[in-house]
Amino acid sequence: MPLNIFVLAKQVIDPEMPRSAFQVDRENRRVVTPPTLPPVVNGFDENAVEAALRIKDSEPAEITVISMGQSFALDVMKKPLSMGADSLVLLQDDAFDNTVDSFAVARALTAAIQKIGPFDLIIAGRQASDWDNAQVPLAVAELLGLPSVTIGKKVEVGDGRVTVERQMPDGTEIVESPMPALVTVSNELGQPRYPTLRGIMAATRKQPVVWSLEDLGLDGEQLEPQVETVDLYVPVTEADCEFIEGEDDADAGRLLALKLREAKLV
């Protein structure tokens, strides 16, 4: 029996876009996505795909990527397939517009997970780079009654257990959990692999499974938001930088040191 691994991946607007492109529609409390800027798979979720693929590198495994949203850029969401994941399940419905409410997202993902069937391991990103919540995976784990381990930089399985090396503020921690379990991973896991040409070809042929709210056996009421946004705005930072100029760069360095001394900062 191959291991069944589910990866949770979210489509987000590119978090590294230039600041000037970032705009908020305050009235509707939404970020306006510039049409020229393609969305991306949340960075940590690419790490999650990579973590699953590394397991698959050493033993038989079936990797299913699950994503929930109102609409998707299919070519973007197929990236995990081109990296080597086996299948893609998209939970797509107009009712799924509130991706801000972690609990509702977790409900929908949990319904999909239960519909797909038994699994050994769920791998998610540590947080989505839009709302930086770091909540959805933990809520999914709670709804499914699973043990959870966060911020993994190395994920290994064996003997029905998962061993995770976690990145801690001042070192690492190794923890172990029985499976099924949920693990979230971070960028310390390392660079996700690039899709190969063969992978890209294979991904082109694969079609995602698309499920609506109804397919999941949910009604809108179960997805009522627990957290509501009452305001969304861009904070103003006042720029009053004093530029230190000298005859050349080296001179500016010297003057900077003198300036810090004068300001009693050193």
């Binding site: 720029a239 530029f243 230190i244 300001a263």
Partner: peptide, 20 residues
């Protein structure tokens, strides 16, 4: 520079040795 109080626009390879 939008959040800095003091700034030097320059190449660190030249700025930092004299700063140090």
């Amino acid at each position: 520079f939008k959040e800095a109080r003091y700034g030097v626009v320059g190449d660190w390879e030249k700025v930092m040795p004299s700063f140090t």
